[in-house]
């Protein structure tokens, strides 16, 4: 089942499937290394709906829930099937 990054609990890992929307935010995410296929781990959430701390590519990133809601993820233990570029 596909889920969004914001639904993950602290300690859960997942793989990025797709980033919804476009524009500057998406480009920023790409610059920070969030591209399809990347494995992420939610480390902790700030209280009261604050941002999430995420580990990827050996570093830490802080992102708001609203932004995490645009990142569709799938379970990381599932074999990652390489989608063709045109569908991303």
């Amino acid at each position: 089942m596909d889920r969004f990054l914001q639904d993950l609990k602290p300690g859960e890992r997942a793989r990025v499937e797709r980033i919804e929307g476009g524009g500057a935010l998406r480009r920023r995410m790409m610059d920070m290394g969030i591209v399809p296929g990347v494995e992420l781990e939610v480390v902790r959430c700030a209280p009261l709906g604050g941002p999430l701390q995420i580990r990827l590519k050996g570093y830490y990133l802080a992102m708001r829930r609203g932004e995490c809601a645009r990142i569709m993820v799938c379970a990381s233990n599932r074999e990652y099937s390489e989608p063709s570029l045109a569908s991303r």
């Binding site: 500057a24 935010l25 920023r28 995410m29 920070m32 941002p51 701390q53 570093y59 830490y60 990133l61 802080a62 992102m63 708001r64 609203g66 932004e67």
Partner: peptide, 12 residues
């Protein structure tokens, strides 16, 4: 209009 993006590195 845009809600500013909060995508920020937490450096070591």
């Amino acid at each position: 209009k845009e809600r500013s993006a909060f995508v920020m590195e937490l450096p070591l």
